[in-house]
């Protein structure tokens, strides 16, 4: 049986761990609020841009752009969004597992795909497995600005324009609620799915100077906005996942402290009983 001192030591260390996890839980909770707000702020922009893109590409008819056309797939791009830090439960591992399976299933050689990772965990995961990572960005702020990811987003889209990749998928955790996040696979390029019905009938636009030139400006911006949207979504998920993970860690610490306190008291009681028995025994021997 462990000595009183041992148990006491374990109780103290568990209590300290609990303080840390509790603090991390609270930090994540407030970051989650901010991240949720950022994601909300982004909605009007994405809705509007989607509406305009949809009405041009569907209403126009003669409008065409390389980004709207599917071509034969020789090389697939995967953009994987993970976090920089761990301690977020299954947040990173579930996304990475999904991507890893996809790559295993669909590709036999490294020339058939290109990987772009956002977040340190994702980059290290693939490097460790000898899968080349073509581009990566790490150290993003918890509340990223559009400017922070603009470069990687436009470089990724450039890959598609240069025909280095023929389609692009994003993998990220979609934020459903504070306790549920879903691994989501989204096809970004070529732009085929505009989500929702055509709105072309209600708004037939005049184009200045013409449709092609507008698409030239609009589509890259739209694709970048999709990537940014996924990132915001993923950030909210990250904080939510970390909050939940830290909450359960705190709860576990509580349980552990309860159990340890119980065995501490038992051991203390046993020691006292033993002492009394010894004293009584000693007194009895003297009589």
């Amino acid at each position: 049986m462990a000595s009183l001192r041992d148990i006491k030591g374990r109780i103290t260390s568990t209590k300290k761990t609990k303080q840390i996890t509790k603090a991390m839980e609270m930090v994540s909770a407030s970051k989650l609020n901010r991240a949720e707000q950022n994601a909300r702020y982004f909605v009007p922009y994405s809705e509007k841009i989607q509406e305009v893109v949809a009405s041009i590409s569907q209403g126009g008819g003669d409008a065409s752009h390389p980004m709207l056309e599917s071509r034969e797939v020789k090389c697939t791009g995967y953009l994987v969004i993970t976090s920089d830090r761990g301690l977020a439960g299954a947040f990173n591992s579930s996304v990475l597992r999904r991507v890893y399976q996809q790559i295993r299933q669909h590709h036999t050689s490294a020339e058939e795909y290109k990987l772009i990772t956002i977040g340190r965990i994702g980059r290290d995961f693939f490097r460790k497995r000898n899968i080349p990572v073509d581009m990566d960005i790490t150290g993003l702020a918890d509340q990223p600005d559009f400017a922070d990811i603009k470069d990687i987003a436009s470089d990724t889209i450039q890959l598609f324009t240069d025909e280095e990749i023929d389609q692009l998928y994003i993998y990220y955790n979609h934020y459903v609620s504070a306790i549920t996040q879903e691994v989501t696979e989204k096809k970004v390029l070529p732009l085929t799915d505009f989500g929702g019905e055509s709105v072309g009938s209600t708004s037939s636009y005049e184009y200045e100077p013409n449709q092609e030139e507008i698409l030239e400006v609009l589509l890259p911006q739209y694709a970048e906005s999709l990537i940014y949207g996924a990132l915001l979504d993923s950030k909210a998920s990250e904080h939510a996942a970390r909050m939940t993970a830290m909450k359960s860690a705190t709860d576990n610490a509580d349980d552990l402290i309860g159990d340890l306190t119980l065995s501490y008291n038992r051991a203390r009681q046993a020691a006292i009983t033993q002492e009394i028995t010894e004293i009584v025994g000693g007194a009895a021997a003297l009589e």
């Binding site: 305009v52 041009i56 708004s203 037939s204 636009y205 005049e206 184009y207 200045e208 100077p209 030139e213 507008i214 030239e216 400006v217 609009l218």
Partner: peptide, 19 residues
């Protein structure tokens, strides 16, 4: 200032998109 030049928009303008 659009790509194609200066634009002035008053109420009642026809629907338009310009970079």
């Amino acid at each position: 200032k659009a790509e194609s030049g200066e634009l002035g928009i008053l109420p009642g303008h026809i629907p338009m998109v310009a970079p």
